[in-house]
Design a protein around this nucleic acid. Structure first.
Lengths: 116, 116
DNA sequence: TATATATATGAATGCTTTTTCATATGAAAA
DNA sequence: TTTTCATATGAAAAAGCATTCATATATATA
């Protein structure tokens, strides 16, 4: 296997970090300002260990920064990259959201399927 | 489960479509202008069925457009979204690429591990 | 120091997605 | 109209990832 194996690695990992509802939910919550872990748990309705795992990933990719303050940890967006990125996609979605979601498999549909 | 299940669905799918080497390779090849499937196979060193599967996904997300011409199909970037998106990440990567790749598991490392 | 609160981590589980293989479709050329 | 070339598709195998659970660490407070 040639060197192109690693060529897109960082890009793939970066976009992969944006490819779950739970992490997108976190980033969106942080759009309105910095928050600590407990606050983020409440806002996203996710349990604490998941939030911590996810924040670690987001931080590792330079998507958020952390500030320690006592026993709390405040996370905030990397506004230079993430704000314009999300804005770009917001615009894209105005046109393509429906097409992207069409044919999407939901829990509801799967349960419905079961009852046949 | 509440309605937030679907809330970020389109965004998750969009970023997921950017989270493989093979599809990033395709987009990068298209940065230099439109190409047909066979050309993209050569440029990316991927087999044809994979390229077709991937192009379908990219098209479904509004990332590329297709033009039929005889028995060929020419694909081109959605420059409105994808060009600035990739540029934004190019810039981000200048700073974070190394951190993102650090600790990354490569085929080489895994094979080395095996020999112990 | 003992206890409570906030956050992080590791391992296991299950789920989703990529990739491959075999085959189908569709358009042109012989 | 048979053959060839270009591309698409479906299903199965392989790979990768999110989430959970149990537990650890770290900081503050009684």
């Amino acid at each position: 296997m040639d060197s192109s194996e690693k060529k897109y690695g960082a890009y793939r990992l970066f976009f992969g970090a944006l490819a779950t509802d739970s992490r997108l939910h976190l980033l969106n919550a942080l759009r309105k300002g910095r928050k600590n872990v407990s606050e983020l748990c409440q806002l996203t309705h996710c349990e604490q260990s998941l939030v911590s795992h996810n924040l670690k990933i987001l931080e590792h990719h330079g998507m958020v920064f952390v500030e320690k303050k006592g026993k709390f940890r405040y996370y905030k967006l990397n506004e230079k990259t993430i704000t314009p990125l999300l804005q770009l996609i917001d615009t894209h979605m105005k046109q393509y959201c429906c097409k992207i979601l069409e044919g999407e498999r939901t829990t509801e549909k799967m349960q419905h399927e079961h009852h046949h």
